[in-house]
Every structure is written in C-alpha cells, then in structure tokens.
C-alpha cells in the first residue's frame, strides 16, 4: 500500500495581530503520496512559499497539523527538527544555497558528513550521484567557479544524497537559463521515475510545472484547484496548466 509522505491538515498561518491580521494560509489540506512529483503554483503572495517553509520545518503553522513520513513535526523540538531535516528532507532552492567555502564535492557530501556516515559509503554515494547529474569533472571546483546550471545540479545532488523521504524544491529553475532549466527538470523527473523519489516543487513557471505529475494551485492562501497529468503528455499538460493560470490571474500571466 502506498504511504502518504506528507499530510497537512487544516493548516492556518496568520501574521500580525490586533487589528492588523494577515492570513497567509487558510485551511490548507495537502497529501503527497510516496513516489509523487507534485507542483505547487500560485501568484506572488499566494502563500505557496509559506506552505513550503512549513513543510520544510523552518516555519510553524498557527494551527493545524503537519505529518511527514509518519511523524508530526509540530511536536518536535528544535534539536529533533534539525535532525529530521538532515535525515528526511532534501532542499533545492532558487538561489542554490551552496556554501562557497566548500568544493562541489564537499557541498554534496555535507549532509552525510553531518550525519557522521562511514567514509567509504559516503564517497561511494557522492560518486554515484555525481555521475547521475553529470558533474563528476567539477567535483573539486568551488561554487564561484561553476555555472548556474552546474550549481543547481550540485544543489540537487546535495538534496538527494542522504536519500530523503521528501525532496522540497523552491523555484529551482528561477535563476537558470532555459537549457539548464530543462536539464535540471529532466534530472528531477528521472529521479522521480527511476528512483521513486518523492518531490514537492514550488514554481512560478508553467514549463517547470509541466514536468510534475500533479499540480496544486493556491490563491490568496486557499487551495484553488488541482490538475493531474494522468496519461497526458507534457505538452498537453503544459497547456492545461496555462489554462488554469489564466483563470487564476493575479499577475502570473506576465511571467509566461
């Protein structure tokens, strides 16, 4: 039976207080099953990043519950959350978030080093992943000396090296040219299809969203609608996404 990896129930997030209340998220329910590749779309300020931050355990909801891989993350303390992030979650960010003091190799193995993994297993995994993303020849370079696409592939390698239950991607193609973006998205799709990795991706970009199996749309902090790719090909799915976006409005059409 397929396990839900993420279960968010009735999640609310309210900022401010006393007459100046701003509701960022309103009664959001979300379930991601194991092996899914889910996209979250919405205009700026719709609350999609807030949602991702909560799933990433770096922000807490005002009310509701979030269960990841069978564990409620709201009951954990800071220390447990850190370990949870390290072992269960992988992150890919728009601005890469690589440490410029570490080489590409060291950036990738950082989560494993933090988990104090055995050196042989650690090196084997780095080699394996470097091959998968085609970055073997730049392993000993520093992030300042490689291209944006290489940086993002490094970040993706780091995100999956610890074999997390869930990979969270926040606008991963935002800072990439279209060729690099396509390469990265194809890598993510391969990861999802071949390794059965569960991926949750927040994006602005309909093209990026078209690689997902399912896309959720958020507007003004509420779940707006949901699209499932099913047996459609990517091109068809891309058009469907565009259709929803034109209904959704809110300044997103100018991005496309």
């Amino acid at each position: 039976m397929i396990q839900p990896v993420v279960e968010a129930k009735q999640v609310n997030k309210v900022y401010g207080g006393k007459g100046n209340v701003y509701t960022a998220l309103d009664q959001i329910d979300l379930t991601v099953q194991e092996g899914e590749f889910v996209g979250i779309m919405g205009p700026s300020g719709s609350g999609k990043s807030t949602l991702l931050n909560m799933l990433a355990t770096i922000d807490q909801p005002t009310s509701g519950d979030i269960v990841i891989a069978g564990t409620s993350i709201l009951k954990m303390n800071e220390e447990q959350l850190s370990i949870f992030r390290r072992d269960r979650l992988g992150f890919i960010f728009q601005d890469f978030n690589l440490l410029d003091t570490l080489t590409v190799r060291e950036n990738i193995l950082l989560p494993l080093a933090l988990a104090k993994m055995n050196i042989h297993e650690l090196e084997r995994r780095v080699d394996e992943i470097a091959d998968k993303f085609g970055i073997r020849q730049i392993l000993d370079k520093y992030p300042t000396h490689i291209s944006g696409g290489q940086k993002q592939r490094t970040a993706a390698s780091r995100a999956i090296v610890s074999k997390p239950s869930l990979i969270l991607a926040d606008e991963p193609t935002g800072a990439l040219d279209s060729k690099s973006a396509t390469d990265l998205l194809e890598s993510l799709r391969d990861l999802n299809e071949q390794d059965k990795s569960t991926i949750l991706m927040v994006t602005h970009d309909a093209f990026a969203a078209s690689y997902c199996k399912r896309v959720l749309f958020i507007k003004d902090g509420r779940m707006f609608t949901e699209l499932v790719k099913g047996h459609a090909n990517r091109k068809e799915f891309f058009n469907k996404v565009l259709d929803v976006l034109s209904v959704l409005g809110g300044g997103i059409s100018d991005v496309i």
Partner: peptide
C-alpha cells in the same frame, strides 16, 4: 547566509 543554509539542511542551533 552560510549558517542559514546550514540550518536549513539540518544543523541545529546548538551545533
């Protein structure tokens, strides 16, 4: 910024 990254990938405040 570096420590923010580290915190995101699972380094606790204590560490």
């Amino acid at each position: 910024a570096r420590y923010d990254i580290l915190r995101k990938i699972g380094v606790s405040r204590k560490e």
